[in-house]
Design a protein around this nucleic acid. Structure first.
Lengths: 142, 142
DNA sequence: ATTCCTGCAAAGATTTTGCATGCCG
DNA sequence: CGGCATGCAAAATCTTTGCAGGAAT
């Protein structure tokens, strides 16, 4: 139905559900959990099952259209579009708001470590946890 | 029974199971999952229940005797003693071996980011994923 | 005796899978 | 048609909780 512009999807069949998932992720400024994606698609669409979301996420991960962006402290996985530029997040442990960090201190380091250890580095995780301004202020009032 | 030297435990009652968990973690050179701790304690002890391990882990986390050290790509949480010096790991995605990295590029960065954003940083996660030498060689043979 | 610790079983929460049906090409 | 996509329910994991009995102080 909806024409999409994802190269990697050619060969896959048209799927309203998949397009809805992608639409939700396009129009989002921070990574989403499976549950959030499910909720947002359902709010518009009112008929998608959770297992379908899991299967779509799985497929999009394999196609590298999305990637796992971060993990909350409770181990909830969050996903974002691969075409979004690589970055990391500060995650507020109170309100779960995620603030992108535009620095990635890791990439240059990877080469150094890779060379000195023979470890073939394929990915990394870097997240900061803490309390955002808003939540700090709220706490002051109580 | 076994005299332990954890300041933070005073006030808590003696518990063979808790001591076994701590013993296992003491004699380990890399972080362990709940399941691994359970297995190792059981191998020696042959009578501890999984729920008890979870409860002990929870308590030790609260007392800050242990901390969550890393998360595998499948979201398995791994724990280590807090008294072990702060460090990060390279995690082989094949054999799950964890190689400590003695550099922490984050700490100095935290201050910079903290100052410029007002975000009160309380923790961070930094992990490298890839393939270790061993696993790379094994693959060559096949 | 009081309170914490423990085991067991049951309940929750999250994710995966089997199967029958539907829809795309 | 042929095969991927989907919904539903059941299964598989992982983790937490209620309760009754046991151990430590």
């Amino acid at each position: 139905m909806m024409k999409n512009h994802y190269e990697k999807l050619k060969g896959c069949r048209a799927s309203k559900n998949r397009d809805e998932v992608l639409f939700v992720m396009e129009n989002q400024n921070c990574p989403l959990s499976v549950e959030e994606i499910y909720g947002k698609v359902k709010a518009k669409n009112s008929s998608i099952s959770l297992s379908t979301v899991y299967r779509i996420i799985d497929k999009l991960l394999n196609l590298e259209i999305i990637r796992k962006a971060a993990t909350l402290e409770d181990n909830t996985s969050l996903y974002e579009l691969t075409k979004d530029s690589h970055h990391h997040y500060m995650i507020c442990t109170k309100c779960k708001k995620m603030i992108p960090i535009d620095i990635c201190p890791i990439e240059e380091l990877e080469h150094k470590i890779s060379d000195s250890t023979g470890f073939n580095i394929t990915g990394h995780k870097f997240e900061l946890y803490g309390e955002c301004k808003n939540c700090a202020q709220k706490q002051d009032r109580s």
